[in-house]
Amino acid sequence: MSTAGVRRGGTALTLIGLAGLIGLFWLSFFWVSTEVNQGVAQRIFYVHVPAAWTSFMAIGISALCSGVYLWLRDERLDRAALAAAEGGFVFATIVLVTGPLWGKIAWGTYWTWEPRLTLTLLLWFIFLGYFMVRGSTEDPEKGKRFAAVVALVGAIDIPFIHVSVLWFRSLHPQPVVAKAEGPTLPQDMLTTLLVGVLVFTVLFFGLFLMRYALEGLRAELQLRERRTSS
């Protein structure tokens, strides 16, 4: 597909996603029933969990594209890896700001070493490292390779981090935390959550495609500048 086509598709998906976001807000404010134990604050769940899902999907996409990029050296794969990493960074930031807002009401403290929150914090730093590496090489090709290595090693490390934060948690018994998720989630909450996951995924891919198109245009610009200078 041409860059312009990707861009149009991205814009369309983004607009659908934004409309969906308004729908999600409406569902979680006016439709879904209030959770008995946690009250209103539990509604943060419907943006917090989908954002977390999206950010972990993003590192998966980024690592996959990075791996194949190192193998095939197709510029498009590197662009996709970069676009996914940027999206993952934004959505991980959403997780990290909404989590403490919920935690303050549910647990009484802004920060706890809740395993998934900890994992997201480290994921955020892995993305940060990805951008710092990319931005601090004089040769862009080198930066692409380095960043691909960072994304790949980060994705390989995430299962280990997950196991370790769960284990650390079991070492330190915490006051009983009311768990919002679980198989016993009532139907309307589950529906709202699934809508949330769908909306965030659509939004992510919409913006992902726009970001991807941007990188394509940049490459085109670079090519043209090199041609005019030579």
């Binding site: 892995i126 490292g129 980060g154 490390d157 934060v165």
Partner: peptide, 12 residues
């Protein structure tokens, strides 16, 4: 740059 890259991965 090294701590930013390595520390998150060292948690396990």
């Amino acid at each position: 740059l090294l701590p930013v890259l390595v520390f998150p991965l060292l948690l396990p």
